[in-house]
Structure formats: structure tokens, C-alpha cells
Design a protein around this nucleic acid. Sequence first.
DNA 1: AAATGGTCGTTTGTCGACAGTAGACAGTCC
DNA 2: GGACTGTCTACTGTCGACAAACGACCATTT
Lengths: 229, 229
Amino acid sequence: MSSKAAPLSQIDNKPLRARVLDSLREAIVAGDLKPGQPLLENELAAQLGVSRAPLREAFQILSHEGLVETVAYRGTVVRKLTKQDIEELYSLRCVFEQFAIRRIIAANNPLDVALLRELFDAMLLAAESGDLKQVNLIDRQFHDTLIELSRHQLLHQAWSMVTLRVRQVMALRNRRNSVLTQIAYNHVPIIEAIEAGDEARAMFLIQEHVVSARDLIVEMWDNGDEPTP
Amino acid sequence: MSSKAAPLSQIDNKPLRARVLDSLREAIVAGDLKPGQPLLENELAAQLGVSRAPLREAFQILSHEGLVETVAYRGTVVRKLTKQDIEELYSLRCVFEQFAIRRIIAANNPLDVALLRELFDAMLLAAESGDLKQVNLIDRQFHDTLIELSRHQLLHQAWSMVTLRVRQVMALRNRRNSVLTQIAYNHVPIIEAIEAGDEARAMFLIQEHVVSARDLIVEMWDNGDEPTP
DNA sequence: AAATGGTCGTTTGTCGACAGTAGACAGTCC
DNA sequence: GGACTGTCTACTGTCGACAAACGACCATTT
């Protein structure tokens, strides 16, 4: 965000609600606030050292992002994730990425591919040093970059709704390490298909990629959709 | 929203912010609040007879829906619609509808097609009696129904962001009457393709449909993207 | 015993008041 | 004269307090 050569870093002057929002969102997608957990306004306000007003304004956004659920006069809880939620999440994610890739291919800008290759190199590096956290971070960056390179603000906005909850899902399960370098190498054919302008192949590959990611999650998702008898 | 055979209609017990939200949203998508128009909190609160708190909470949602733009300490204005916005709007809309139709075809439920045919009949009826407003309403319902029949909550949520602003766009231009019955008949081949399970054809048709709708708007969009010199 | 009705405590919903900020305007120094 | 600086104002941001609504519990009635 900040320009890199600035002698003095910019003072964070964002409204409180924005900082509260970021804080809560991070806690939710990181899994610190568990699904189903009620968010009491008084308690949270005291904990964050703010009044209820900015907190409530942050809740509005979170609710619209689908991270929490608010019932009038009943309160706000972290949204639960059912198996169906996950199916929907990944299926829409796939649609978004396919659309983004189509646009990238149509734009046909060599710099785009170069950027993706850069990310891949970084991911490979992290994988070889066994840094799982870093691999995950770059993996996320890779897919976020796909969306950004599509240069479609509205898509970008819609994407944020999906990617936030995907992060939440990944945080809530114990990610098996799998083979790190294998994860990294999975991205190569996608980049190559984009580079070659082979739309059909890119569509197929990204779908495979997302579906396999989904399957990893879904099969080990323990909580049932309908816990009521 | 309300069930139709209820002897007593439900008393509106929604929180103020929700009613404020609906009111503002309707005013914006109907074009009563013009793009660029500043929304002064005090003024609007007085006008609606509420305090600023629920109004501000409504602003949060509207901002997240892309209908207004809020700058910290500067205020909130109705979001302007540039040509690029419209391009993005319709391109994403197309992606959403294609995805919805793929799911409808996959579900292969005859009742879905029946419902769509029903809507078509109603549209045709309205078109023949020259009721432009009604045709537009049913046209909207038709496309909303496509999304709903996909039975994909997340898609439905993302769709609302798109459809709201499409309504705004349509409200802001003076819709040429064109040939009403022609508009209605445009939907027939789409329904037939769904019925036949011909995915490729349905994809093509809905794209044509959306693109032609977009072209009608874009070509007569007068305001430039960058009015600043 | 089941169902109805009332009370109470907790939590959210709303309000009015105060503090803070950005931009506009005018004044001052070079 | 030009540019910087100080003030002023209208608006947003935040707060604490009060009102309203819900759910749980208990008393009452049939």
C-alpha cells in the first residue's frame, strides 16, 4: 500500500470501523473466532477498546461478506460452514478464475505471464525450504493475482467474498502437508496454457486445480449439514 | 417475499436500518437519487425521520453493494456509473447467468422449465397489452429466476450486487420501447435450449442476450469516463 | 399436566451530543 | 505576487445513555 521509498511511513488514519473490521475479519478467516461463536457487542467493544457504534458498522460489512450472521434483536454469530457452503464456495471460485483467465488470455500481455512465473518461482523456493505457511501465502497470492490481472474491478470485489471464506475454510482444517513442491508444480501447466493462449486447456486445468482443492477439504469435513434430528 | 395465502399480513418488525436500507436502495436503483449526488447524513436522517446511526449502518451495506461510495471524513455519494462499470457489470452478469443455466441443465428438473415458461407467458401477455413497465418487471424476474433455480446461495448473493446496478443503469436511461413482443420472444430459444439440455447452445444464447442488452445501453451512454481534464 | 400469561434480565436498537477532520478562505511573510 | 500558514466551518466519526425486544423462568389457570 505505502510507497516504498518514503522517509516517513504514513500514519494510519483510517476510521476506527475500518480497523475494527480488519481485525475481526482477520480473526474470523484465521479461525481464531470459531463458527457459531456469538459476538457480543459489549464484550467485543470493551475488548477492542472502542464503543459499540464502529463495531456495529463493521458487523454490517462482515454480515454482507457472509462471514457472520446477524439476527435482529438476537445478536451476531460467526457464520457456520456447511458442506454445501464449501461446495458453493469452490464452484463459484472456479467460475471466477475461469473468467479471469479468459480475460488474461484475451489481453495477451506478456508481462502478466511474467508476473505469474515470478510468483511460481517464489512458491517453489518456499516449498523447497519446507515453509508451509509461505507456500500457502504465495498460493493465495497466485490466485489473487489471476483475478487482479483480469482488470475487472467488479470481479475483484466479488472475488473477495469468495477468497475470504476459502481462507477461513483452510484455516479451520488441519492442512495436511502433502508434498509441498507438488503443490507448487501444479501451477506450471496453468501458466503455460495462459502463455500459449490455449483457453480450453486453461479452463480445464484451473477447474481440475480447484476441484482437487475442494475435494481435499470436503472429504475431511466432519460437521454434518443438519445436526438437528 | 410474503406468503400469498396469509390471512393477516405480517407486521413489519424489521429494524430501522433495514427499512432505511430498502428505502435508499430503491431510490438509487430507481434513479431518484442520481449518481454523484452527495448523501448528507443530517439531511437524510431528518428527511427519513430517523437518527444518523441506522442511516450510517445502511450506508455500510450500500457501499459494499457498490451503490454508493464513502470517503472517510468526506462523506457518501451515489456511485457514478462509467462506461467501464457497465461493461464489467454486463460481462459478469453473463458469467453468472451462464453458470446458473449450466446448473439448471445439470439438475434437469422439468418443473424448472415449466416455471420459466410461465414467466415467458406472462411477459408475452404484458407485451401484447403494451405494458412496458410490466414487461421490464417480468424480464427482471425471468433472469432472477434463472439464478434462483440454480439453487446456489452464494451465486444468488453475488447476483444481487450485479442486478441492483443493472436496474440502476436501466432506470437512468430512457428506455426505448423497441418492439415489446420481440423482447419477450427473445427468451424462447433460451428456454428451449435449457429444456433440451443443450448446454453449448444455451451458453451462446444467453451471451447473445446479455451482450445485446449491454450494447443497447453502452452506445447511448453519454457521460464520459474521465470528465476531469 | 399442559397451556397460557406475566415478570425479569440480558442484549440489541436507537438516539442526541461531543470530538475530530478535511477543505475553503483569508491573512501574513518573503 | 506567490506560497505558506492559520483560522473557520460544515460535515463525518465516535461515544455514552436510554428505549425496545427477545428468551427464560415462574406463577397461574383450566
